Simulated scan of single mutants.
Amino acid sequence: MKVKKSTMKGVYIFCVCLVMVSCTDVENSGSQVPQVFRYGYRPPDVDVGEKMAELDGFRQYLEKKLEMPVELYEILGYAPAIEALRANKIEMTTLGSFAFVIAEEKAGIEPIAYRGHKDTGKGSYFSLFITTRKDLKTIEDVKEKAHTLKLAFGNPASTSGHLIPRKYLKENGINPETDFEEVLYCPDHTASLMATLSGNVDVAAVMNITINKFLQSGKITENDFVTLFQSDPIQTDAYVVRPNLPLELKQKAIKAMVDMCQEAPEIWYGISPVSDRDVILFPARQELWNEIREMALLTKKEMFGK
């Protein structure tokens, strides 16, 4: 059986042994007020020109609210984003729930805001297993034929691309490392989706937000894939700041993010990863990610036995 050599232990090490990145020549030192407020963003996967213009509108909004220069820096992946925060190379970014829990444990990263419905304050999205194979209709079909299938997870630090789908497979008696012909790790959800649609993999873990973006853009249709599994709701991403950001500036950043939905709704809708206009930003509460923390701990015990 052909299994990719990277083990779960190797994946965990990838998540926590982060790669140094240098985002700018401007050096912001520790707990001092920075010369420039730097926001790290993940590159958009659809409508790139339009989304970059919307990000620049967000930059201008932050400059006004924070009363200081703001610069945007493209960061590819969770590991460089976490290390950039830890090394004082950026002040703020967005991390998926699992990536945030890793960052919190390893670098003391702090959450400041999250997405939620304006009426309930609850925010969620979903993890999906998708396929284009006509002979796969249920997870039992996957279990029966796993030894002939190629599986794609997302980024190893992804909640919906790795943590949740791995847990689901284990609960259904499927061990990814031993049961599948091959297990791959894609850099992001777009890559996982494209790998499935192109036939390079048989089954992939993808978040519903990515699929919805491609459906809304007309790049794919619902007839292009089959959904084998949809998770329970997952706590949304955390907007986070580096741990030694001065308190006054952190408070300004929290207020700027939360107020944006009322004061500059078009800017918020432009940068929001979801199209639902009833989804706004709320101040973060640590307990929101407790379930993800518990899953991460169980995954660590599974890998290291302690």
Rank of each mutant, 00 (worst) to 15 (best):
D188Q: 08
V183L: 11
K170T: 13
M68W: 01
D135G: 12
G96S: 15
F126P: 15
H117M: 02
L288Q: 11
D119H: 05
P283V: 04
L193G: 04
Q286A: 11
G305A: 14
D278N: 15
Y168T: 12
L66R: 01
S231E: 09
P43S: 08
K106N: 13
K145P: 12
V142R: 09
V21D: 04
P246Q: 09
K301N: 14
Q230W: 04
Y78R: 09
K301R: 15
I13S: 06
K9W: 09
E74H: 08
K150T: 00
D202F: 05
I82G: 14
V19Q: 14
K213T: 04
A238V: 10
E294M: 13
A205Q: 05
S124P: 08
E222D: 12
S192Y: 08
Q286R: 12
I139C: 10
L149V: 04
N223G: 11
Y41R: 05
K300I: 08
N223W: 11
N155E: 15
Q216L: 00
G218E: 14
P283H: 00
A53R: 06
R242G: 00
Y185C: 09
A264I: 15
D135I: 10
A87W: 11
G123C: 13
I112S: 10
A103T: 08
S31I: 05
V21A: 11
H117E: 04
D232L: 05
P165V: 00
T7H: 02
I254P: 12
G10Y: 02
D47W: 13
Y185S: 07
A107R: 06
S160H: 01
N212Q: 14
S22E: 02
S6N: 05
D56G: 14
G305M: 14
A253G: 15
K137W: 06
N290E: 05
E302W: 04
S158M: 03
